[in-house]
Nucleic acid binder design. Sequence first.
DNA 1: GTCTATACTTCGATAGAC
DNA 2: GTCTATCGAAGTATAGAC
Lengths: 203, 203
Amino acid sequence: MAPARRIGASDSKTRARLVDAAEQLVLEEGHASVTSRRVGSRAGLKHQLVHYYFQSMDDLFVEVFRRRAEENLARVERILAGEVNLRTLWELNADPGGTIFSIEFVAMARHHKGIRAEVARYAERYRAAQLRAMASALETSGVPARQLPPVVALLLMTGLSQVLSLEEALGIKAGHTETRSFVTTLIDGLEPDNRVPGGGGRQ
Amino acid sequence: MAPARRIGASDSKTRARLVDAAEQLVLEEGHASVTSRRVGSRAGLKHQLVHYYFQSMDDLFVEVFRRRAEENLARVERILAGEVNLRTLWELNADPGGTIFSIEFVAMARHHKGIRAEVARYAERYRAAQLRAMASALETSGVPARQLPPVVALLLMTGLSQVLSLEEALGIKAGHTETRSFVTTLIDGLEPDNRVPGGGGRQ
DNA sequence: GTCTATACTTCGATAGAC
DNA sequence: GTCTATCGAAGTATAGAC
């Protein structure tokens, strides 16, 4: 066994600052230009501290992903615990920061086993949470599962939402307005009112 | 004016080998690990030749993208010039290599102006080519544009196709079989036969 | 058109003092 | 926990001989 170098505690405040800095850099400049030196500099710390708190840059990236994934999952589950309808589901995927994050980490996932495992695990959990909501929303709207299985509806919605965000990030916008209003109209037809008439007290 | 360094002819065979090598590396290892040294080595050439044929690495990437984009556009237009139906359109987007290419260059496009312009231009042309085909296919199948505008159908199809390929590349497969067979069944319902009864001769 | 040689920068990571 | 110092590897790019 090699002596192994020292690694700082995972609840360190400095460590969290490094993760913050790395997250910002991934969003602003892309994962390819996130280096230990730039992370340190952005955090106002020496770059060697990155190596004190993380065995490797990969470990840092995993931490960046995991932290944000958990936060987002908590957010989604909190929202879906309340009113569950198609409108909410559609609006849920509109976060542009999420799109960029997804672009970066999916690209990384191809070549970093640790990242790939983390991304896959997150995607499955996110999908499962939405699936329950989608099944319930479709049932409420009177769309039978035989006509449109909830998984299919979810993948359609996810795909559409992603392609729109992604293209908008690149400045492509042909057909977007028409498509967004088509979806909105469709949902309005199925859910004439946002509120369940005599429904849940929440909020 | 600086004397500017010499740049090789764009019809050089050596140059093409470098572009080949770069393309392979992007596909296999991702754009972040494509360096002039690795490109040279993969092509069996000195790495300095990369700088002889390209002003910068960015220029090389632009060339890789452009070449493949033109090839694919030609392929798509050739296919869509023949039979135009929903089945063909759906199968068109099933190329997994295309998905990986898209992941890599979309990620690059965020930070390289040259790449972004190229990607946007390509996406618009690709969209336009498919849109004509989609409008025609929907009309043939008796789906009125007021019920489902061709652009919307195209974005739905593109989004679904991309999300499926992308997730499969990461090993996520929940709901995929069900979704694919749903699409196939839907198309079969609209297009009972692959061939147009007395239709066009073009193979 | 291809070669050798090289300048200059930046990277990840480690050792050891404080 | 943070510092200074440093290693070795790899990157882009250029100059100039052949």
